[in-house]
């Protein structure tokens, strides 16, 4: 029982302190905030150790499985190469570590990112299939926006104004509606956790 009560008490006290801290500009309050950020970084650095252990355990176990062995070998070789190169040769701007990052990691990330173009096409196809009134409105609106933002659209009278209106009025209004709900949801969730009503994180 104590195992659950102590974390709940810590969350209650720190939650209240941090909520009050937001309204207090005094340097003492700022000091509390800065210290909590330092603690956060310290906890995160410890979590990294656990995460690396998890990463290594996950991939070493999969080495035994023929289906995944190749992928896990690549992951482990890449991990140890970067660790070794970083520790032995350093990580400054002109180091091998940075060269590997710039010439391998960055292009690989860009490649994955560029896949979005294809995924967008297939997602758009699915969205624009006319199945009902909502899908029809969606398709017409999307067509107007796409057409209006192209070069040809600039030559059509009032097209720019229509695009601007769609983006600034219905689009922005719905976005703000969602954001107001999100804001209240965030506060409600925080209150639930601070008061210990939401306690899934300690096992319910």
């Amino acid at each position: 029982m104590l195992q659950k009560r102590i974390p709940l008490l810590i969350v209650f006290i720190t939650g209240i302190v941090m909520a009050v801290q937001y309204f207090v500009p005094h340097p003492v309050s700022q000091h509390i905030y800065d210290t909590s950020l330092k603690w956060d970084r310290a906890v995160a650095s410890m979590a990294y150790i656990l995460a690396i252990v998890s990463f290594l355990r996950f991939h070493t176990r999969r080495l035994k499985d023929k289906k995944y062995a190749l992928y896990s070998t690549v992951s482990l070789v890449a991990f140890f190469t970067m660790v070794l190169v970083g520790f032995v040769l350093g990580t400054d701007e002109r180091s091998l570590f940075q060269d590997i990052y710039k010439n391998m990691m960055v292009p690989l990330q860009a490649t994955t990112f560029s896949l979005l173009a294809f995924f967008m096409s297939s997602a758009a196809y699915r969205a624009f299939r006319i199945r009902g009134l909502e899908a029809t409105i969606l398709m017409i609106t999307a067509f107007v926006i796409i057409f209006g933002t192209t070069t040809i659209g600039n030559y059509v009278p009032y097209m720019n104004d229509i695009v601007e209106w769609i983006m600034a009025v219905p689009n922005l209004a719905s976005k703000r509606g969602i954001l107001i709900g999100v804001g209240l949801g965030v506060v409600a969730t925080s209150i639930k956790i601070i008061l210990g009503i939401e306690r899934n994180w300690v096992g319910g």
Binding site: G185, T189, I197, E198
Partner: peptide, 30 residues
């Protein structure tokens, strides 16, 4: 789940009266 529905999910799934109380409060505030 759009926006706030994500935050309501825990209460909704558990049906814990205390948690559903917070959802009602959230709705009144809205």
């Amino acid at each position: 789940l759009i926006g706030e529905e994500l935050y309501a999910a825990s209460a909704y799934l558990s049906r814990d009266p205390l948690l559903t109380g917070t959802i009602k409060g959230q709705d009144l505030a809205k």
